[in-house]
Write a protein that binds this DNA or RNA. Structure first.
Lengths: 238, 238
DNA sequence: TAAATAGTGTCTCTTAGACAGTATATG
DNA sequence: CATATACTGTCTAAGAGACACTATTTA
């Protein structure tokens, strides 16, 4: 809407600070992880927060989200997919000032390794979602379950799972993404048939991947297809 | 995140204006409609915009969205469901100042009738989604298709369609919501079976609704059930 | 009566899941 | 060899869609 609207002259209209917070997830040792850091804010001592930054002049929200991540995990552009989650704007969410925060979901193809001396941690996303609110700064205890549920839901009807893998990948690796995010076990045979028969989900690549230390037949390699929405969807049981 | 972060002292950090814009939809004569108004902004003369308001001090984003709607369509609380859509924050989206806008989707059970002398209009949502960008103020040409697609997608896996109907309703009316939003024709027999067999979607109510002017058997009445997510989903064909 | 809408029954086709069986690696 | 993982084949049950049929209204 316009800045010059009838209520603009009202003293009740505030100018808010706008920030971006990023729930950055990756797969590490078959588990879904979430990157956390500690805010430099005395009122939030000892708590964890999602990496966040204020939005700069002439900077888009997407750019702020990418900056919040790249300033924490390194200068080089990471293989990361960013998707806006939702915006949190309760008046009292920051105890000292009105801050509206646009939350992002970030999916990385490789484990997230902070390259900064600041206190950071990587935890499993499912565990973090069950933490009590006091362990998080601000209202980040509410953002984490929202991010996790968004990811879980989008694995059903989009090809987002491939954003959590390096290219190329095997169908066993893709299945382990679904298993980690949904916390279920999937039948390898039926999973394979569904993925291969969903148009545009994956396309065959050259060569095979060597088996793990426990042996097994080498797996074919695949790459992401051109579909973003899956039809039919990969529905989870309920 | 915190206001007092290391980049706060930087001159490049702005304080943005925060606004809420609402894509309010309803069913009218079997068609999905969208409520539009005209901004009082000389730079946007002759264009249409979604109803919007600046966020006030101590006002949540949800409250701003409800206020943007209620100040336009009347004082009494309308039967409206509000859901946050996404946030639009490109630096140049408003030509005069940096304004970050949180867009909402609003679904009304009755046709939206503006009660304000200001220039307003109600158009079919599908038509508005195909308008050229010049007919909309700011970046609202991008918000409308996003809102429409969100609604179309959510009819599949949630019980949101009932928010576009007054209680109680008939299954014919519920079907006409799906047909209006998806722009398809659905088989009445199969639609009925799917709805009734989806747990928690609807529950039988007392009495029957009289048939329309062209006759027909009176229809049973139903009310919304307690499910918000539908299993199995009401999938549209592709 | 015809036409329209509501609701039931039934058939077919597709798909999901269970699971047996085959292929190829490690140890 | 046993074991692990990849991949294929096949059976069954459930769901979607097509469509015939019955029920109850308006004109």
């Amino acid at each position: 809407m316009s800045v010059v609207q009838e209520d603009q002259r009202s003293a009740r209209v505030s100018t808010c600070a706008v920030a971006v917070d990023v729930a950055a997830m990756a797969i590490e040792d078959g588990r879904l992880t979430l990157l956390l850091t500690e805010p430099d804010d005395a009122t939030q001592a000892g708590r964890w927060s999602l990496p966040g930054r204020r939005v700069r002049d002439d900077e888009s929200l997407d750019a702020t989200a990418m900056r919040a991540l790249s300033e924490l995990i390194g200068t080089e552009e990471p293989a990361v997919l960013l998707e806006q989650l939702r915006t949190y704007g309760e008046p009292a969410r920051d105890p000292r000032a009105r801050v509206v925060s646009v939350a992002y979901l970030a999916l990385a193809a490789r484990p997230l390794v902070p390259s900064v001396r600041r206190r950071t941690t990587v935890v499993t996303a499912a565990d973090a979602a069950t933490w009590p609110a006091e362990r998080f700064a601000y209202d980040h205890a509410a953002i984490v379950p929202d991010a996790l549920e968004r990811l879980r839901a989008k694995l059903e009807y989009t090809s987002l799972a491939t954003a959590l893998l390096e290219q190329p990948f095997t169908l066993g690796e893709l299945r382990s993404v679904y298993e980690a995010v949904w916390d279920v076990e999937l039948d390898p045979a039926n999973f394979r048939r569904k993925v291969v028969s969903t148009p545009g989900f994956v396309r065959a690549a050259d060569g095979t991947a060597p088996p793990g230390p426990s042996g097994g037949r080498p797996a074919r390699r695949y790459r992401s297809g051109d579909a973003t929405r899956l039809h039919p969807a990969m529905l989870r049981d309920r």
